[in-house]
């Protein structure tokens, strides 16, 4: 999975460079998020602007990151959800769980 990592002020931004997260690459996403948290990232932002499709395993990978960040008292936010991706969070009510911003810019200025 192609992911760009960038430090912006006190935040670590992981920008997903794929248009699709499914059972083929969700394990990789989960591991990369966990590694980033283990590496000491305090405020993680996952930029999903390029992602047009996510399945249940992708949601699972993001939930894993969310729970791990909570254990470490680290921030964990999602940004740039496309309509189809957002609808997956709404169907499962996970939009009430995650900290979600319309864009990376808004997530960084929050």
């Amino acid at each position: 999975m192609r992911i760009a990592k960038e430090i912006r002020d006190d935040r670590t931004v992981l920008s997903i460079q794929e248009d699709r997260i499914d059972a083929h690459n969700s394990g990789e996403l989960k591991n990369l998020v966990l590694k980033t948290l283990e590496g000491g990232a305090q405020n993680l932002v996952i930029d999903l602007a390029r992602v047009q499709f996510i399945d249940s395993s992708g949601l699972g990978a993001l939930l894993s990151g969310y729970k791990n960040a909570n254990l470490r008292s680290s921030g964990f936010a999602l940004a740039g959800l496309q309509p189809r991706v957002r609808s997956m969070f709404e169907l499962t009510r996970l939009h009430r769980v995650f900290d979600i911003y319309p864009s990376l810019q808004l997530a960084l200025s929050a």
Binding site: S56, G60, L63, K67, V97
Partner: peptide, 10 residues
């Protein structure tokens, strides 16, 4: 907030 078990629901 389990990581699995939503596929059939979808």
């Amino acid at each position: 907030l389990g990581e699995r078990g939503r596929g059939i629901f979808f």
